[in-house]
C-alpha cells in the first residue's frame, strides 16, 4: 500500500508537468487545428533559459525565492517572444495552405530550436544548482518533497486560473469564439490574428513555467529534453480530448499515473515477460488506443474528425 501510494504521488507530480505542457498543444490545436510540433522545444528553451538564469543569479548571491521568480520571468519572456514570432513567421503564412505544410514547418522549427539550443548551451547535460533544500513530507506512507508539493499545487493553480480566464474574461470569450468559427468570430468584431497570437503567448508562457519546473525537479537540462516531453504531453492532450483545456489537465494527470503504475507493476503482472523497459511504449499505446476507440478523447464533445 505504501508503494502504491508512492507510485500515485510520483505519477501525479509527473502528470502535472505533462498537463502544463499539454495545455500549450491543446489551445493551439483548438484554434488553428495545427499540432504545434515545436511546443515541446519551446518548453526546452524555457528550461534552459531559467537554468542559466538560476546559475547566474545564484552565483551572485541572490536569495532563492527571488532567483526563482526572476528565472521564471526570464524564461517566460524568451518563450513568449519565440512563440509569437514562430506563429508569425512559420504558421501564419500557411494558414490556408495544404494541411501537410504547416505540420512540416512545425517539424522544421522543432529541429531548428533543438540545434540552436545545442549551439548556445552545448550538447552536454547541464547541472542545475541546488537552490531549494528539499524537505520531506510523509503522506499515507508516501515520501513527498516540498518541491514536488509546490510543483503540483502551482500546476493546479495555473490550470484553474486558465480555465477561469477562458470562461470569464473578454479575451477568453474571444478565444472560444475563434475556436468555434474563425470567420464568424471575425465578422463579430474579434481580431482573430490577435487572438491567435495571444494563444501562443499563453501557451508559451505556461510552457516556460513547465520548463522551469522540469529543471528544478530533475536537476539537469539538455537540448533534446523537449522532444520526449512534448510527445508525452501531446499524448496527454489527445487522451483528454484535444482542443479541450480541462481535458488536457485530466489527460496529463492520468498519463503520469498510468506510466508510473505501469512501469512499477508491469513486471509482476506479466510474470517478468514485459518489464519497465517498455515504459515509453505505454504513452504511445494509450495514444493509439484512444485515437482508434474514441478519437475525440475522454472529454471531447464532438465525434472528432471525419475520415
Amino acid at each position: 500500500m505504501e508503494i502504491f501510494a508512492q507510485q500515485l504521488v510520483n505519477g501525479l507530480v509527473l502528470g502535472s508537468i505533462y498537463a502544463l505542457v499539454a495545455l500549450g498543444y491543446t489551445m493551439v490545436y483548438g484554434i488553428l487545428g495545427l499540432i504545434n510540433f515545436a511546443h515541446g522545444d519551446i518548453t526546452m528553451i524555457g528550461a534552459l533559459v531559467s537554468l542559466t538564469a538560476v546559475q547566474l543569479l545564484a552565483a551572485a548571491g541572490v536569495p532563492a525565492p527571488v532567483v526563482l521568480v526572476l528565472a521564471g520571468g526570464a524564461a517566460m519572456v524568451v518563450c513568449v517572444a519565440l512563440g509569437v514570432s514562430i506563429e508569425r513567421v512559420a504558421y501564419r503564412p500557411l494558414r490556408h495552405a495544404p494541411r501537410l505544410a504547416p505540420l512540416i514547418t512545425a517539424i522544421g522549427i522543432s529541429i531548428l530550436l533543438q540545434y540552436s539550443a545545442a549551439l548556445i548551451w552545448g550538447k552536454q547535460y547541464i547541472a542545475m544548482p541546488e537552490i531549494v533544500e528539499p524537505t520531506r513530507i510523509v503522506i499515507a506512507g508516501a515520501q513527498l518533497t516540498s518541491l514536488q508539493a509546490t510543483i503540483f499545487l502551482l500546476a493546479c493553480a495555473i490550470m484553474a486560473g486558465l480555465l477561469w480566464f477562458l470562461k470569464a474574461s473578454r479575451m477568453g470569450r474571444a478565444m472560444r469564439a475563434t475556436e468555434q468559427n474563425p470567420a464568424v468570430a471575425g465578422l463579430m468584431g474579434v481580431n482573430t490574428n490577435k487572438v491567435i497570437a495571444f494563444t501562443f503567448v499563453l501557451g508559451s508562457a505556461i510552457g516556460a513555467i513547465a520548463g522551469l519546473m522540469v529543471v528544478l525537479y530533475y536537476g539537469l537540462g539538455h537540448y533534446f529534453m523537449g522532444f520526449m516531453l512534448g510527445l508525452k504531453a501531446f499524448t496527454a492532450a489527445v487522451l483528454g480530448g484535444i482542443g479541450n483545456v480541462a481535458g488536457a489537465v485530466l489527460g496529463g494527470l492520468l498519463l503520469g499515473v498510468i506510466e508510473s503504475l505501469a512501469s512499477g507493476y508491469i513486471g509482476d503482472l506479466t510474470g517478468g515477460v514485459l518489464g519497465s523497459n517498455y515504459r515509453d511504449i505505454f504513452a504511445f499505446l494509450v495514444l493509439v488506443l484512444v485515437l482508434v476507440l474514441k478519437p475525440s478523447g475522454l472529454m471531447g464533445q464532438h465525434s472528432g474528425d471525419r475520415a
Binding site: 483548438g30 488553428l32 487545428g33 495545427l34 494558414r95 490556408h96 495552405a97 495544404p98 494541411r99 501537410l100 504547416p102 475556436e179 468555434q180 468559427n181 474563425p182 482542443g243 471531447g300 464533445q301 464532438h302 465525434s303 472528432g304 474528425d305 471525419r306
Partner: peptide, 14 residues
C-alpha cells in the same frame, strides 16, 4: 491538397 481549415470545417466547429 485542400487547405487545412476549410476541409475540416464541419468538425472544426466544436
Amino acid at each position: 491538397g485542400p487547405p487545412a481549415k476549410e476541409t475540416e470545417a464541419p468538425s472544426a466547429a466544436r
